[in-house]
Design a protein around this nucleic acid. Sequence first.
DNA 1: TCCTTGCATCGATGGCTGTCGATCTGTTGA
DNA 2: TCAACAGATCGACAGCCATCGATGCAAGGA
Lengths: 123, 123
Amino acid sequence: MLTTIEVTGVNVATEIPLRVRGCCQPVAPRIPGPDAEECAAVFRALGDTTRLQMIHMLAKATEPVCVCDFTASFDLGQPTISHHLAKLRAAGLITSTRRGIWTFHQLNPAMSQAAREVVALLH
Amino acid sequence: MLTTIEVTGVNVATEIPLRVRGCCQPVAPRIPGPDAEECAAVFRALGDTTRLQMIHMLAKATEPVCVCDFTASFDLGQPTISHHLAKLRAAGLITSTRRGIWTFHQLNPAMSQAAREVVALLH
DNA sequence: TCCTTGCATCGATGGCTGTCGATCTGTTGA
DNA sequence: TCAACAGATCGACAGCCATCGATGCAAGGA
């Protein structure tokens, strides 16, 4: 175990680094570009408290949820809720179905495997 | 299976909704506020392709990684890399240790359980 | 045919974020 | 003591994002 000292959020160690490879070398194979962007997009969609709560609500819900359920649950206007739902839809996390006057939302059954694994973490 | 028609990204179903509870009702218990915000912060930190690649590299690396390794791997300036590392550090995903001239970075061994589960998905 | 209702869309606005060049700081070696 | 280097910080800037009020639009009911 190294003895370290906190300095502006960075630990200062007093020992010589054990370093095999040279410096300034790429370290490991990267995630393929498109995969990384798609994965980041899912994280970005969930990187907002409101949308995270929405996905959690949909994951818990036993029947489809309409927009007014969300507006009743969050202190936000209807256009803002609609905007968040559009973001979740664009990320492929939910699907929306209109039945008569109402539009119902649910987790996308055809969600990507990566997205499914992330959503599963939200119980 | 419902027969649906695509209209501006929303499916239009022709059947009457099966709805037990009334409309405009909160649906399920929410994630406690602080938990949701902390969780969203982790997702937000991973919601950028560069940072996602960084975490992936650190997860794959067998020894600590210094800033110049990242600048060699990404087409970004050193201040930008430093900025992204600071974001990952603020989210509790990595720790940074200075040894002599270099600052080495690694996945935070004391990462929150939620964060650990998310990072584990990146292989 | 007209009104009401649920929801999407538009335009505006303030705040946040990714990126850069310039600069500052701390460490090493001469 | 000083020069060279790794990396953090600062200030600026452009682009994105969350939010709102206003408006448009489709469906249902009178």
